[in-house]
Computed example of a mutant assay.
Amino acid sequence: MNLFGNILYVSENAVNQETSIMRAVSLAENNQGNLTVMDVAPVIAADIDLPYGRPISNEVQSAIVSERRKMLEALIEPYKKHLDIRLDVLVGTTFLEVIRAVLRNGHDLLIKPAENPGFIERLFGSDDIQLLRNCPCPVWLTREEEKSKYEHILAAVDFNPDMPDTIEQDLNQQILGLSGSLALSDFASLHAIHVWDAPAEAMLRTWANDSREASATYVEGVRSSHERAYNRLRQQLIERIGKDNSDYLSPEFHMRRGVAATVIPEIAKQLHADLVVMGTVARTGIAGLLIGNTAEAVLEQIQCSVLAIKPPGFVSPVQL
């Protein structure tokens, strides 16, 4: 199955990215797609003086761009015989230029080695966080320990069984379908996780005449409704990837009570997950969205790679 036809890889010079670029090249080859490898050089202020009093010129900025291009050429050198890789070096703010490149060139996947930002960067939004929030295509943030072939993939889905949401349902289908295809491609085990909770339990214990029975009945009712909806998703996955593929994968479906931002990292660690595939909860038309959403919270807590998918109809607040 060809999942991605136009892949953008963004270089992260501060980390070891050998295995990450291998993943991007492998995906492009397997999908018979295009691969662009890109870097963004910072803008050099024109009024900064050099030691001899000569102002920074366009030539100096061009030299920095040229040096970045040489670094990209060295990065892709081992793969040039296998794939025609396009190189691009832009100047500006990294996340803005990356998103504009996605919009301009119609990329359907962004791969980037994850940063290791300091506290201030995390607080105000590193490039990775900004890409998770605002990039319109799926964002695949890889770790330095990236494997050439994954062994365990975890798909995280979320839904409200009492208030079905078409956007949410479509997003879950994308998550499960993509996770299944990647698991088949890498011969990896596939796990799915759904986290639920019963928020009114404490209130029932306070106000009901028979508080224990009332709260137990309520919790079981909530659990059952989530389980039924989850089973429907399981059946839809089988239909999407085919019964033979489903029998081969034998995906395991986990349902845990708790807070998603806590439970997902816990089960990812238990399963030794190499990749967590999940959605962002962004809704169309909301700009500057989702500070502290689940995808961001999970990224902060796990050591494996994350593939974050936007819901259908998402429009990035960043414009060309």
Rank of each mutant, 00 (worst) to 15 (best):
277 V>W: 03
175 I>H: 02
175 I>T: 07
173 Q>C: 09
72 L>M: 06
196 W>L: 04
195 V>G: 03
74 A>W: 02
34 N>E: 11
98 V>I: 13
196 W>H: 03
112 K>G: 02
261 A>L: 06
16 N>L: 08
245 N>K: 14
187 F>D: 11
36 T>G: 01
60 V>A: 03
57 S>L: 01
152 H>Y: 10
237 L>T: 10
156 A>S: 13
165 D>C: 14
75 L>W: 00
240 R>F: 11
79 Y>I: 04
178 L>H: 08
244 D>G: 08
215 S>D: 06
98 V>A: 08
14 A>G: 03
11 S>M: 11
115 E>S: 12
87 L>T: 13
174 Q>Y: 08
68 R>C: 13
33 G>F: 04
280 T>R: 03
286 I>S: 00
24 A>W: 08
111 I>S: 06
45 A>N: 09
33 G>V: 06
131 L>S: 04
201 E>Y: 01
71 M>S: 15
97 E>G: 00
115 E>D: 13
4 F>M: 04
300 E>G: 04
16 N>T: 09
149 K>S: 15
239 E>F: 03
306 V>S: 10
181 S>V: 12
182 L>N: 07
160 N>E: 11
233 L>A: 10
301 Q>T: 09
149 K>R: 15
100 R>W: 00
267 I>T: 08
147 K>W: 04
46 A>D: 12
94 T>K: 11
207 W>I: 10
83 L>S: 05
256 R>A: 11
124 F>Q: 06
62 S>M: 08
65 V>M: 09
255 M>W: 01
316 S>W: 02
70 K>S: 10
83 L>F: 06
313 G>D: 06
191 H>Y: 15
274 D>K: 07
211 S>G: 14
132 L>I: 14
239 E>Y: 01
74 A>N: 13
192 A>Y: 07
12 E>V: 08
226 H>A: 11
302 I>T: 13
279 G>V: 00
275 L>H: 07
217 T>M: 12
11 S>C: 11
157 V>G: 01
269 K>V: 13
69 R>Q: 15
62 S>H: 10
200 A>S: 12
306 V>I: 15
137 C>T: 15
129 I>C: 01
307 L>Y: 02
200 A>R: 07
138 P>H: 11
320 L>C: 09
